[in-house]
Design a protein around this nucleic acid. Structure first.
Lengths: 127, 127
DNA sequence: CAGGATCCGCCACGATACTG
DNA sequence: CAGTATCGTGGCGGATCCTG
């Protein structure tokens, strides 16, 4: 895993875009945000995450956790018991990042026009 | 193109995560942010974008522009002259979104530990 | 000049099986 | 329980050629 890290392309545009791209890369995994939201308020066990994030595979969950840990967004704690017990908790940095990300939801609420755009008639509303 | 739109997975997690995911999907294209940053301050021609975003292919630039337009982030203006002249400009919604996104850069500055994490010794700085 | 049409490679994600 | 190992796949991005 471990995204390309550091603006692999886009040398033409401003440095700020590059930084934003880098940050987005850290949470761009399909399940990264879900994992973060589940670990915001205290340690959560691997199996608990697997249950909350219905549909995720063990492999992807592991990779996602490793990436977030490597990025300093999660702390991994191993309790040397048997059976093993491993817990994951979001860091302060992760919580701040998460807050800013949810700010994007505010944007969506303030811009229904944009939010409604691009909806496929077949699969939008329900589900 | 046109991302899956509307949380295709992640029914388990909160609705807010879903909304954020949707918003991120709108700018997740490899060049979407670059295009936005170039069009923030007034109309820009297709060829101008192609020059600014060094390395982008015509096809991808077109697709990116179409997607952003469909999402209400860009306005496309065709001047019926010959040769044709097409200009793209960010909408107000896009500018607000862009501002919130650059807020993520602030986060990176406030968290050097996280920002520095995951750097591959071989391929970071230079290039 | 601003694209559309085609073909292709890569990589994130996924399914499944095995293990300390 | 909490992972690793292996294999397979869809879809985004890119290269290249053609056109109103």
């Amino acid at each position: 895993m471990s995204r390309t890290t550091a603006c692999t392309a886009q040398e033409g545009v401003g440095r700020e875009v590059c930084t934003v791209l880098d940050v987005l890369g850290r949470v761009s995994g399909k399940w990264s945000l879900g994992v973060l939201s589940e670990t915001l308020h205290g340690p959560v066990r691997f199996s608990a995450l697997e249950r909350s994030l219905a549909g995720i595979s063990r492999r992807i969950l592991t990779l996602t956790l490793r990436e977030l840990e490597e990025d300093g967004l999660l702390v991994r704690t191993v309790h040397p018991t048997v059976p093993p017990r491993v817990e994951y908790a979001a860091t302060d940095a992760a919580r701040e990042l998460y807050e800013r990300l949810t700010g994007l939801a505010d944007w969506a609420r303030r811009h229904p026009e944009a939010a409604a755009a691009g909806r496929r008639p077949g699969g939008a509303g329900a589900r």
